[in-house]
């Protein structure tokens, strides 16, 4: 958590990232940037999923609809914040010549998406049966 707070400062202070170590090959930086953008797209897709649940499942009970939509929107916010955090940490690791940071986030996100998908299938089938 303390690491996270220190990283938040780095999000806004590019000079501090550049102070450390040596500049890596620009191709590695661009690859890191593309990974960041891919995570940002994932976040946007989750947000779009939140909108889709809200708009295209109008017959869902209100509580379920709002709950599922907010879960997807929350996952989107988490994913986008983590995208920039991971980008900063990778950038710093490359400058210092360290290993790239390992992360549990992809596993957590995929479990969350699985849970939302299962709930959605169950709720939609229950809606048909009723």
């Amino acid at each position: 958590m303390i690491d996270f707070v220190r990283n938040v400062r780095l999000w806004f202070a590019p000079e501090e990232v550049r102070k450390e170590g040596s500049t890596p090959d620009y191709r590695f930086s661009l690859a890191n940037e593309r990974t960041f953008l891919a995570w940002l797209r994932t976040a946007l897709a989750l947000i779009a999923g939140g909108f889709a649940v809200d708009q295209f499942l109008p017959r869902l009970p209100q509580g379920w609809r709002i709950g599922l939509a907010l879960a997807l929107l929350g996952a989107g916010v988490l994913c986008s914040l983590r995208a920039v955090d991971h980008w900063v940490r990778c950038e710093r690791a490359m400058r210092r010549g360290e290993d790239l940071p390992a992360s549990r986030f992809p596993a957590v996100l995929s479990l969350l998406v699985t849970a939302v998908a299962v709930v959605m299938v169950v709720v939609v089938f229950a809606g048909w049966a009723a």
Partner: peptide, 29 residues
């Protein structure tokens, strides 16, 4: 050689995304 992405630039893009999500939450509720 292209310059590396600035941290502020990346953060600004993320903040746009987060703000859209907040708008979405306001619309859902």
């Amino acid at each position: 050689p292209p310059p590396a992405l600035a941290a502020r630039h990346a953060t600004a893009a993320v903040l746009c995304t987060v703000a859209v999500a907040v708008c979405a939450a306001a619309l859902v509720l």
